[in-house]
């Protein structure tokens, strides 16, 4: 069968229609095949990020959450008690738009200090300049050729360090508002990436302010565990 020289508009329309139906059939089938894996991946991603900024917890944390003023709080329970809160927030003041991140808080409202002097601040989304603003946000273990040859390995259970993010460790609602050193505060910044450093500071400030304002509602709401 050779349809190369078909010129009738109706026939052309029918052929295009058949192609469209076959293509959507294939896509519908494949959507079903991958749906489960993609959803599982999304949940795993959230849980992994939460586990990085919180001490060991026992509950299904993704479902134990409450939102105030655009900040989403997750409650980590251990032995039926609330041990820490993680807050997910975003600010628009980055050099290249939105910066979003997770902050782990103690119930008194201070940024948790994790193993190895790391702070519980993790940037989960940013589009800052690579090599400059991105260095303020990234926690990444630097692998060097010399290090690999010597057999160095990253310490398990310790987040990769980041001078700016780690300077938030222990800062709480009583030291609001936080500022970078250039503006007279005590948060580190990277020269040439002050805007990004300020934006990250804004993010932590936003989380702490919201926590301070709604502390009385957040703690009871998340302590219950199951809604």
């Amino acid at each position: 069968m050779n349809l190369k020289n078909v010129k009738n508009s109706l026939a052309l329309g029918v052929i295009l229609g058949i192609v469209g139906v076959v293509a959507s059939g294939v896509l519908a089938w494949f959507y079903g095949v991958t749906e489960h894996a993609i959803e599982a991946g999304r949940i795993r991603k959230t849980n992994q990020a939460l586990a990085m900024v919180l001490p060991a917890f026992e509950n299904d944390i993704a479902s134990n959450a409450i939102e105030f003023d655009g900040v989403k709080f997750y409650g980590a329970l251990s032995g039926g008690k609330l041990i820490a809160v993680a807050a997910e927030a975003a600010v628009q003041s980055g050099y290249a738009g939105e910066i979003s991140g997770l902050v782990g808080l103690s119930d008194s409202g201070a940024v948790l200090e994790l193993k190895g002097g790391r702070s519980a601040v993790l940037i989960t989304g940013q589009q800052e300049t690579p090599g400059l603003g991105a260095n303020v946000c990234n926690r990444q273990n630097v692998k060097t050729l010399a290090g690999i040859l010597r057999g160095e390995k990253a310490e398990p259970g310790v987040l990769p360090g980041n001078a700016v993010l780690d300077s938030f460790a222990g800062k709480g609602v009583d030291s609001l508002p936080l500022q970078v050193k250039k503006d007279g505060g005590d948060i580190e910044f990277i020269t040439g990436a002050t805007i990004t450093s300020r934006a990250v500071t804004d993010l932590v400030n936003k989380v702490l302010e919201t926590y301070k304002a709604h502390q009385g509602e957040i703690i009871p709401a998340l302590s219950g565990g199951v809604k």
């Binding site: 069968m1 050779n2 349809l3 190369k4 020289n5 078909v6 010129k7 026939a11 052309l12 052929i15 295009l16 192609v19 469209g20 293509a23 294939v26 896509l27 494949f30």
Partner: peptide
């Protein structure tokens, strides 16, 4: 290729390519 009319070949190519890209 023999089932594709010359006049609508480009839209058909794009549909085929878009399907594979989505996969």
């Amino acid at each position: 290729k023999n089932l594709i009319p010359n006049r609508v070949r480009i839209p058909i190519y794009i549909v085929v390519i878009a399907t594979f890209v989505t996969l």
